[in-house]
Nucleic acid binder design. Sequence first.
DNA 1: CTTTGATCTGAACGAATGTTCAGATAAATC
DNA 2: GATTTATCTGAACATTCGTTCAGATCAAAG
Lengths: 198, 198
Amino acid sequence: MARTQGSHSDITGPRVRDAALSLFAQHGYAAVSMRQIAAEVGVQAGALYNYTSDKQSLLFDLLKSHMDQLLASWMAQPEAPVAMQALEQFTRFHIRFHSERPEAVFISYMELRNLTPENFAVIEELRKDYETKLEDILRAGVAQNVFSVREPKVTAMALIAMLTGVNTWFKSDGRLSLEDVEQVYWDMVRKAVSKRTD
Amino acid sequence: MARTQGSHSDITGPRVRDAALSLFAQHGYAAVSMRQIAAEVGVQAGALYNYTSDKQSLLFDLLKSHMDQLLASWMAQPEAPVAMQALEQFTRFHIRFHSERPEAVFISYMELRNLTPENFAVIEELRKDYETKLEDILRAGVAQNVFSVREPKVTAMALIAMLTGVNTWFKSDGRLSLEDVEQVYWDMVRKAVSKRTD
DNA sequence: CTTTGATCTGAACGAATGTTCAGATAAATC
DNA sequence: GATTTATCTGAACATTCGTTCAGATCAAAG
Protein backbone atom coordinates (compact mmCIF):
# COMPACT_ATOMS: atom_id res chain seq x y z
CA MET A 1 0.00 0.00 0.00
CA ALA A 2 2.73 2.39 -0.92
CA ARG A 3 2.13 6.02 -1.71
CA THR A 4 -1.12 6.29 0.21
CA GLN A 5 0.19 9.50 1.65
CA GLY A 6 1.86 12.06 -0.54
CA SER A 7 0.01 10.48 -3.39
CA HIS A 8 -1.23 12.68 -6.19
CA SER A 9 -4.57 10.97 -6.45
CA ASP A 10 -6.27 13.11 -3.84
CA ILE A 11 -5.06 16.20 -5.67
CA THR A 12 -5.51 15.12 -9.26
CA GLY A 13 -9.04 13.83 -8.65
CA PRO A 14 -10.53 17.21 -7.74
CA ARG A 15 -8.52 18.88 -10.46
CA VAL A 16 -10.03 16.55 -13.04
CA ARG A 17 -13.50 17.41 -11.82
CA ASP A 18 -12.76 21.13 -11.79
CA ALA A 19 -11.34 21.05 -15.29
CA ALA A 20 -14.29 19.05 -16.59
CA LEU A 21 -16.77 21.40 -14.93
CA SER A 22 -15.15 24.48 -16.39
CA LEU A 23 -14.71 23.05 -19.89
CA PHE A 24 -18.18 21.51 -20.05
CA ALA A 25 -19.66 24.85 -19.02
CA GLN A 26 -17.66 26.72 -21.64
CA HIS A 27 -18.03 24.48 -24.67
CA GLY A 28 -20.57 21.81 -23.78
CA TYR A 29 -20.12 18.17 -22.86
CA ALA A 30 -20.11 16.81 -26.40
CA ALA A 31 -17.69 19.44 -27.64
CA VAL A 32 -15.06 18.75 -24.96
CA SER A 33 -12.64 15.87 -25.42
CA MET A 34 -10.98 13.83 -22.73
CA ARG A 35 -7.67 15.08 -24.11
CA GLN A 36 -8.70 18.69 -23.49
CA ILE A 37 -9.60 17.89 -19.91
CA ALA A 38 -6.31 16.05 -19.46
CA ALA A 39 -4.36 18.97 -20.91
CA GLU A 40 -6.06 21.35 -18.47
CA VAL A 41 -4.98 19.10 -15.59
CA GLY A 42 -1.49 18.68 -17.03
CA VAL A 43 -1.67 14.96 -17.61
CA GLN A 44 -2.15 12.48 -20.44
CA ALA A 45 -5.66 11.40 -21.41
CA GLY A 46 -5.17 7.86 -20.16
CA ALA A 47 -4.53 9.08 -16.62
CA LEU A 48 -8.07 10.42 -16.36
CA TYR A 49 -9.34 6.87 -16.20
CA ASN A 50 -7.83 6.53 -12.73
CA TYR A 51 -10.51 8.98 -11.58
CA THR A 52 -13.53 8.23 -13.71
CA SER A 53 -14.77 5.10 -15.40
CA ASP A 54 -15.73 7.06 -18.49
CA LYS A 55 -16.73 10.48 -19.78
CA GLN A 56 -20.40 9.96 -18.96
CA SER A 57 -19.65 9.29 -15.29
CA LEU A 58 -17.63 12.46 -15.16
CA LEU A 59 -20.69 14.46 -16.24
CA PHE A 60 -23.08 12.57 -14.02
CA ASP A 61 -20.90 12.95 -10.92
CA LEU A 62 -20.73 16.71 -11.45
CA LEU A 63 -24.51 17.05 -11.77
CA LYS A 64 -25.22 14.62 -8.95
CA SER A 65 -22.95 16.33 -6.45
CA HIS A 66 -24.33 19.72 -7.44
CA MET A 67 -27.88 18.61 -6.72
CA ASP A 68 -26.80 16.90 -3.49
CA GLN A 69 -25.10 20.08 -2.34
CA LEU A 70 -28.14 22.14 -3.26
CA LEU A 71 -30.51 19.99 -1.25
CA ALA A 72 -28.12 19.59 1.69
CA SER A 73 -27.52 23.33 1.87
CA TRP A 74 -31.23 24.04 1.87
CA MET A 75 -31.86 21.45 4.57
CA ALA A 76 -29.15 23.06 6.69
CA GLN A 77 -31.13 26.31 6.79
CA PRO A 78 -33.13 26.98 9.95
CA GLU A 79 -36.77 26.17 9.32
CA ALA A 80 -39.09 29.18 9.19
CA PRO A 81 -42.58 28.46 10.58
CA VAL A 82 -44.16 31.52 8.95
CA ALA A 83 -44.70 31.05 5.21
CA MET A 84 -43.79 34.62 4.29
CA GLN A 85 -40.43 34.28 6.01
CA ALA A 86 -39.86 30.85 4.54
CA LEU A 87 -40.47 32.21 1.05
CA GLU A 88 -38.08 35.09 1.58
CA GLN A 89 -35.51 32.65 2.91
CA PHE A 90 -35.95 30.41 -0.11
CA THR A 91 -35.70 33.32 -2.54
CA ARG A 92 -32.50 34.66 -1.06
CA PHE A 93 -31.01 31.21 -0.59
CA HIS A 94 -31.67 30.25 -4.20
CA ILE A 95 -30.13 33.39 -5.64
CA ARG A 96 -27.10 33.20 -3.38
CA PHE A 97 -26.45 29.48 -3.83
CA HIS A 98 -26.80 29.61 -7.59
CA SER A 99 -24.79 32.78 -8.08
CA GLU A 100 -21.90 31.19 -6.19
CA ARG A 101 -21.48 28.32 -8.67
CA PRO A 102 -22.57 29.52 -12.11
CA GLU A 103 -20.73 26.78 -14.00
CA ALA A 104 -22.35 23.92 -12.09
CA VAL A 105 -25.76 25.55 -12.50
CA PHE A 106 -25.15 26.03 -16.19
CA ILE A 107 -24.27 22.44 -16.98
CA SER A 108 -27.02 21.18 -14.68
CA TYR A 109 -29.52 22.79 -17.03
CA MET A 110 -27.71 22.40 -20.34
CA GLU A 111 -26.34 18.90 -20.23
CA LEU A 112 -29.34 16.94 -19.02
CA ARG A 113 -29.88 15.56 -22.51
CA ASN A 114 -26.36 14.16 -22.57
CA LEU A 115 -27.04 11.94 -19.58
CA THR A 116 -27.97 8.31 -20.10
CA PRO A 117 -31.65 7.67 -19.32
CA GLU A 118 -30.78 6.08 -15.97
CA ASN A 119 -28.55 8.95 -14.92
CA PHE A 120 -31.11 11.47 -16.14
CA ALA A 121 -33.80 9.90 -13.96
CA VAL A 122 -31.63 10.31 -10.86
CA ILE A 123 -30.97 14.01 -11.49
CA GLU A 124 -34.57 14.66 -12.45
CA GLU A 125 -35.82 13.26 -9.18
CA LEU A 126 -33.44 15.44 -7.17
CA ARG A 127 -34.62 18.44 -9.14
CA LYS A 128 -38.21 17.60 -8.36
CA ASP A 129 -37.35 17.24 -4.69
CA TYR A 130 -36.04 20.77 -4.73
CA GLU A 131 -39.06 22.14 -6.56
CA THR A 132 -41.29 20.46 -3.99
CA LYS A 133 -39.56 22.38 -1.20
CA LEU A 134 -40.81 25.62 -2.71
CA GLU A 135 -44.18 24.15 -3.57
CA ASP A 136 -44.65 23.17 0.09
CA ILE A 137 -43.87 26.70 1.19
CA LEU A 138 -46.45 28.05 -1.23
CA ARG A 139 -49.08 25.58 0.01
CA ALA A 140 -48.30 26.50 3.60
CA GLY A 141 -48.78 30.15 2.73
CA VAL A 142 -52.13 29.40 1.20
CA ALA A 143 -53.12 27.41 4.30
CA GLN A 144 -51.96 30.30 6.49
CA ASN A 145 -54.06 32.62 4.34
CA VAL A 146 -51.13 34.86 3.43
CA PHE A 147 -50.55 33.79 -0.20
CA SER A 148 -52.89 33.72 -3.17
CA VAL A 149 -51.62 30.86 -5.32
CA ARG A 150 -54.03 28.82 -7.37
CA GLU A 151 -51.41 26.54 -8.90
CA PRO A 152 -48.63 25.86 -6.39
CA LYS A 153 -46.74 23.43 -8.65
CA VAL A 154 -46.78 25.72 -11.67
CA THR A 155 -46.00 28.75 -9.52
CA ALA A 156 -43.03 26.98 -7.95
CA MET A 157 -41.55 26.22 -11.36
CA ALA A 158 -42.25 29.74 -12.57
CA LEU A 159 -40.53 31.32 -9.57
CA ILE A 160 -37.54 28.99 -9.78
CA ALA A 161 -37.13 29.77 -13.48
CA MET A 162 -37.23 33.47 -12.66
CA LEU A 163 -34.70 33.20 -9.83
CA THR A 164 -32.31 30.99 -11.75
CA GLY A 165 -32.41 33.53 -14.55
CA VAL A 166 -30.25 35.79 -12.41
CA ASN A 167 -27.27 33.69 -13.47
CA THR A 168 -27.68 34.67 -17.11
CA TRP A 169 -26.86 38.31 -16.51
CA PHE A 170 -25.52 38.94 -12.99
CA LYS A 171 -21.92 40.14 -12.71
CA SER A 172 -20.52 40.66 -9.21
CA ASP A 173 -18.74 43.83 -10.37
CA GLY A 174 -21.86 45.26 -11.99
CA ARG A 175 -24.08 48.14 -11.00
CA LEU A 176 -26.14 46.06 -8.56
CA SER A 177 -24.74 44.11 -5.63
CA LEU A 178 -26.02 40.63 -4.96
CA GLU A 179 -27.90 42.06 -1.99
CA ASP A 180 -29.59 44.55 -4.32
CA VAL A 181 -30.54 41.76 -6.69
CA GLU A 182 -31.95 39.68 -3.85
CA GLN A 183 -34.13 42.59 -2.83
CA VAL A 184 -35.43 43.27 -6.33
CA TYR A 185 -36.32 39.63 -6.84
CA TRP A 186 -37.79 39.24 -3.38
CA ASP A 187 -40.06 42.22 -4.04
CA MET A 188 -41.29 40.53 -7.21
CA VAL A 189 -41.74 37.12 -5.62
CA ARG A 190 -43.58 38.54 -2.64
CA LYS A 191 -45.95 40.51 -4.80
CA ALA A 192 -46.46 37.68 -7.28
CA VAL A 193 -47.92 35.42 -4.58
CA SER A 194 -49.65 38.22 -2.64
CA LYS A 195 -53.40 38.24 -2.03
CA ARG A 196 -54.19 41.79 -3.11
CA THR A 197 -53.23 44.08 -5.90
CA ASP A 198 -54.59 47.41 -6.96
CA MET B 1 -31.37 26.39 -66.60
CA ALA B 2 -32.91 22.96 -66.52
CA ARG B 3 -34.79 21.58 -63.54
CA THR B 4 -35.63 24.95 -62.03
CA GLN B 5 -39.17 23.75 -61.62
CA GLY B 6 -39.90 20.32 -60.27
CA SER B 7 -36.52 20.55 -58.67
CA HIS B 8 -35.96 18.94 -55.30
CA SER B 9 -34.01 21.86 -53.95
CA ASP B 10 -37.01 23.79 -52.70
CA ILE B 11 -38.19 20.69 -50.90
CA THR B 12 -34.89 19.34 -49.62
CA GLY B 13 -33.78 22.72 -48.29
CA PRO B 14 -36.53 23.06 -45.68
CA ARG B 15 -36.21 19.39 -44.83
CA VAL B 16 -32.54 19.86 -44.05
CA ARG B 17 -33.38 22.74 -41.75
CA ASP B 18 -36.19 20.82 -40.07
CA ALA B 19 -33.99 17.77 -39.51
CA ALA B 20 -31.18 19.90 -38.13
CA LEU B 21 -33.55 21.75 -35.81
CA SER B 22 -35.02 18.56 -34.45
CA LEU B 23 -31.72 16.75 -34.02
CA PHE B 24 -29.91 19.75 -32.51
CA ALA B 25 -32.73 20.12 -30.00
CA GLN B 26 -32.64 16.45 -29.09
CA HIS B 27 -28.92 15.82 -28.81
CA GLY B 28 -27.18 19.17 -29.06
CA TYR B 29 -25.29 20.79 -31.91
CA ALA B 30 -21.92 19.22 -31.14
CA ALA B 31 -23.36 15.76 -30.69
CA VAL B 32 -25.14 15.69 -34.05
CA SER B 33 -23.17 14.80 -37.18
CA MET B 34 -23.83 15.96 -40.70
CA ARG B 35 -24.37 12.30 -41.59
CA GLN B 36 -27.18 12.01 -39.05
CA ILE B 37 -28.90 15.06 -40.49
CA ALA B 38 -28.46 13.65 -44.00
CA ALA B 39 -29.90 10.29 -42.94
CA GLU B 40 -32.96 12.02 -41.47
CA VAL B 41 -33.49 13.78 -44.80
CA GLY B 42 -32.82 10.60 -46.76
CA VAL B 43 -29.75 11.81 -48.57
CA GLN B 44 -25.97 11.47 -48.44
CA ALA B 45 -23.93 13.84 -46.28
CA GLY B 46 -22.35 15.57 -49.25
CA ALA B 47 -25.74 16.69 -50.56
CA LEU B 48 -26.26 18.89 -47.50
CA TYR B 49 -23.63 21.26 -48.81
CA ASN B 50 -26.01 22.30 -51.57
CA TYR B 51 -28.08 23.95 -48.84
CA THR B 52 -25.59 25.20 -46.29
CA SER B 53 -22.00 26.32 -46.54
CA ASP B 54 -21.12 24.46 -43.36
CA LYS B 55 -22.50 23.11 -40.09
CA GLN B 56 -22.04 26.40 -38.28
CA SER B 57 -24.19 28.25 -40.81
CA LEU B 58 -26.90 25.66 -40.37
CA LEU B 59 -27.06 26.46 -36.66
CA PHE B 60 -26.80 30.18 -37.13
CA ASP B 61 -29.56 30.29 -39.76
CA LEU B 62 -31.90 28.42 -37.43
CA LEU B 63 -31.27 30.80 -34.53
CA LYS B 64 -31.34 33.88 -36.73
CA SER B 65 -34.64 33.06 -38.38
CA HIS B 66 -36.15 32.17 -35.00
CA MET B 67 -35.24 35.55 -33.59
CA ASP B 68 -36.39 37.33 -36.75
CA GLN B 69 -39.73 35.57 -36.55
CA LEU B 70 -40.05 36.43 -32.87
CA LEU B 71 -39.47 40.13 -33.44
CA ALA B 72 -41.59 40.28 -36.59
CA SER B 73 -44.49 38.52 -34.87
CA TRP B 74 -44.35 40.92 -31.95
CA MET B 75 -44.22 43.94 -34.25
CA ALA B 76 -47.27 42.60 -36.09
CA GLN B 77 -49.32 42.84 -32.90
CA PRO B 78 -51.62 45.87 -32.55
CA GLU B 79 -49.99 48.43 -30.29
CA ALA B 80 -51.66 48.87 -26.89
CA PRO B 81 -51.47 52.44 -25.57
CA VAL B 82 -52.28 51.45 -21.98
CA ALA B 83 -49.31 49.85 -20.22
CA MET B 84 -51.38 47.28 -18.34
CA GLN B 85 -52.90 46.01 -21.59
CA ALA B 86 -49.54 46.05 -23.33
CA LEU B 87 -48.04 43.94 -20.54
CA GLU B 88 -50.85 41.42 -20.73
CA GLN B 89 -50.46 41.29 -24.49
CA PHE B 90 -46.73 40.70 -24.15
CA THR B 91 -47.21 37.99 -21.53
CA ARG B 92 -49.74 36.06 -23.58
CA PHE B 93 -47.83 36.57 -26.82
CA HIS B 94 -44.59 35.33 -25.32
CA ILE B 95 -46.13 32.18 -23.88
CA ARG B 96 -48.03 31.41 -27.06
CA PHE B 97 -45.19 32.09 -29.47
CA HIS B 98 -42.66 30.09 -27.48
CA SER B 99 -44.95 27.15 -26.77
CA GLU B 100 -45.59 26.79 -30.49
CA ARG B 101 -41.93 26.15 -31.34
CA PRO B 102 -40.27 24.46 -28.38
CA GLU B 103 -37.35 23.09 -30.39
CA ALA B 104 -36.33 26.44 -31.82
CA VAL B 105 -36.62 28.02 -28.38
CA PHE B 106 -34.56 25.26 -26.86
CA ILE B 107 -31.61 25.55 -29.22
CA SER B 108 -31.81 29.34 -29.12
CA TYR B 109 -30.93 29.14 -25.44
CA MET B 110 -28.71 26.07 -25.42
CA GLU B 111 -26.52 26.49 -28.44
CA LEU B 112 -25.43 30.09 -28.10
CA ARG B 113 -21.99 28.96 -27.01
CA ASN B 114 -21.55 26.94 -30.19
CA LEU B 115 -21.87 30.04 -32.35
CA THR B 116 -18.78 31.78 -33.63
CA PRO B 117 -18.22 35.12 -31.86
CA GLU B 118 -19.52 37.06 -34.88
CA ASN B 119 -22.67 34.97 -35.15
CA PHE B 120 -23.19 35.14 -31.40
CA ALA B 121 -23.08 38.92 -31.48
CA VAL B 122 -25.85 39.02 -34.08
CA ILE B 123 -28.17 36.76 -32.07
CA GLU B 124 -27.37 38.53 -28.83
CA GLU B 125 -28.38 41.88 -30.26
CA LEU B 126 -31.71 40.51 -31.48
CA ARG B 127 -32.32 39.06 -28.04
CA LYS B 128 -31.62 42.43 -26.45
CA ASP B 129 -34.00 44.06 -28.88
CA TYR B 130 -36.73 41.76 -27.68
CA GLU B 131 -35.93 42.34 -24.01
CA THR B 132 -36.09 46.06 -24.65
CA LYS B 133 -39.66 45.72 -25.92
CA LEU B 134 -40.72 44.49 -22.50
CA GLU B 135 -38.52 46.97 -20.71
CA ASP B 136 -40.21 49.81 -22.59
CA ILE B 137 -43.61 48.56 -21.54
CA LEU B 138 -42.49 48.49 -17.92
CA ARG B 139 -41.12 52.01 -18.14
CA ALA B 140 -44.35 53.21 -19.74
CA GLY B 141 -46.30 51.63 -16.88
CA VAL B 142 -44.14 53.45 -14.35
CA ALA B 143 -44.65 56.72 -16.24
CA GLN B 144 -48.39 56.08 -16.30
CA ASN B 145 -48.22 55.45 -12.55
CA VAL B 146 -49.71 51.95 -12.83
CA PHE B 147 -46.59 49.83 -12.22
CA SER B 148 -44.12 49.77 -9.36
CA VAL B 149 -40.83 48.70 -10.94
CA ARG B 150 -37.57 50.02 -9.59
CA GLU B 151 -35.35 48.13 -12.02
CA PRO B 152 -37.04 47.86 -15.43
CA LYS B 153 -34.11 46.09 -17.13
CA VAL B 154 -33.69 43.48 -14.41
CA THR B 155 -37.43 43.02 -14.14
CA ALA B 156 -37.75 42.50 -17.88
CA MET B 157 -35.17 39.74 -17.80
CA ALA B 158 -36.74 38.18 -14.73
CA LEU B 159 -40.19 38.10 -16.31
CA ILE B 160 -38.89 36.73 -19.61
CA ALA B 161 -37.04 33.97 -17.78
CA MET B 162 -40.20 33.11 -15.91
CA LEU B 163 -42.36 33.07 -19.03
CA THR B 164 -39.90 31.08 -21.10
CA GLY B 165 -39.80 28.52 -18.31
CA VAL B 166 -43.25 27.37 -19.40
CA ASN B 167 -41.52 25.44 -22.17
CA THR B 168 -39.70 23.21 -19.70
CA TRP B 169 -42.85 21.59 -18.40
CA PHE B 170 -45.91 22.45 -20.50
CA LYS B 171 -47.60 19.58 -22.36
CA SER B 172 -50.56 20.42 -24.56
CA ASP B 173 -52.33 17.26 -23.40
CA GLY B 174 -51.74 18.00 -19.72
CA ARG B 175 -54.11 19.08 -16.97
CA LEU B 176 -53.91 22.75 -17.88
CA SER B 177 -54.70 24.21 -21.29
CA LEU B 178 -52.45 26.86 -22.75
CA GLU B 179 -55.18 29.39 -21.95
CA ASP B 180 -55.09 28.28 -18.31
CA VAL B 181 -51.33 28.65 -18.24
CA GLU B 182 -51.51 32.12 -19.78
CA GLN B 183 -53.93 33.16 -17.06
CA VAL B 184 -51.81 31.77 -14.20
CA TYR B 185 -48.70 33.50 -15.51
CA TRP B 186 -50.50 36.74 -16.29
CA ASP B 187 -51.79 36.84 -12.70
CA MET B 188 -48.23 36.51 -11.44
CA VAL B 189 -46.80 39.06 -13.86
CA ARG B 190 -49.53 41.59 -13.10
CA LYS B 191 -49.07 41.26 -9.36
CA ALA B 192 -45.26 41.26 -9.59
CA VAL B 193 -45.24 44.74 -11.12
CA SER B 194 -48.24 46.05 -9.18
CA LYS B 195 -48.05 49.08 -6.92
CA ARG B 196 -49.77 47.67 -3.84
CA THR B 197 -49.63 44.44 -1.92
CA ASP B 198 -51.10 43.52 1.42
C1' DC C 1 18.28 -0.79 0.07
C1' DT C 2 14.72 -3.57 -1.75
C1' DT C 3 10.05 -4.21 -2.58
C1' DT C 4 5.56 -2.69 -3.49
C1' DG C 5 1.91 -0.67 -5.88
C1' DA C 6 -0.44 3.67 -6.91
C1' DT C 7 0.09 6.77 -10.60
C1' DC C 8 1.13 8.19 -15.07
C1' DT C 9 3.03 7.93 -19.99
C1' DG C 10 2.81 7.06 -24.70
C1' DA C 11 1.34 4.46 -28.18
C1' DA C 12 -2.24 2.11 -30.23
C1' DC C 13 -7.29 0.60 -31.52
C1' DG C 14 -11.33 1.09 -34.54
C1' DA C 15 -14.71 4.30 -35.31
C1' DA C 16 -16.49 8.70 -36.38
C1' DT C 17 -15.86 13.62 -37.59
C1' DG C 18 -16.65 17.88 -41.29
C1' DT C 19 -15.79 18.74 -45.81
C1' DT C 20 -14.54 18.15 -50.80
C1' DC C 21 -15.27 16.60 -55.40
C1' DA C 22 -15.33 13.80 -59.71
C1' DG C 23 -18.77 11.57 -61.76
C1' DA C 24 -23.65 9.53 -62.02
C1' DT C 25 -28.58 10.72 -62.45
C1' DA C 26 -32.53 12.62 -64.30
C1' DA C 27 -35.85 16.38 -65.15
C1' DA C 28 -36.59 20.51 -67.92
C1' DT C 29 -35.51 22.89 -72.18
C1' DC C 30 -34.73 23.28 -77.05
C1' DG D 1 -34.34 13.01 -79.08
C1' DA D 2 -30.35 15.75 -77.81
C1' DT D 3 -28.60 18.99 -74.56
C1' DT D 4 -28.20 21.26 -70.35
C1' DT D 5 -27.52 21.59 -65.54
C1' DA D 6 -29.38 21.28 -60.82
C1' DT D 7 -29.04 17.67 -57.72
C1' DC D 8 -27.12 13.83 -55.54
C1' DT D 9 -23.93 9.73 -54.79
C1' DG D 10 -20.06 7.49 -53.05
C1' DA D 11 -15.54 7.54 -52.08
C1' DA D 12 -11.84 9.85 -50.15
C1' DC D 13 -9.11 13.32 -47.06
C1' DA D 14 -6.84 14.33 -42.77
C1' DT D 15 -8.32 14.73 -37.90
C1' DT D 16 -10.13 13.65 -33.89
C1' DC D 17 -12.74 10.81 -30.81
C1' DG D 18 -13.15 7.59 -26.21
C1' DT D 19 -10.89 4.02 -24.36
C1' DT D 20 -7.32 0.39 -23.36
C1' DC D 21 -3.00 -1.23 -21.69
C1' DA D 22 1.91 -2.66 -21.31
C1' DG D 23 5.48 -0.60 -19.27
C1' DA D 24 7.93 3.46 -16.98
C1' DT D 25 8.21 6.16 -12.69
C1' DC D 26 8.90 6.92 -8.03
C1' DA D 27 7.38 7.77 -3.15
C1' DA D 28 6.35 5.06 0.84
C1' DA D 29 6.73 0.62 3.44
C1' DG D 30 9.48 -3.08 5.17
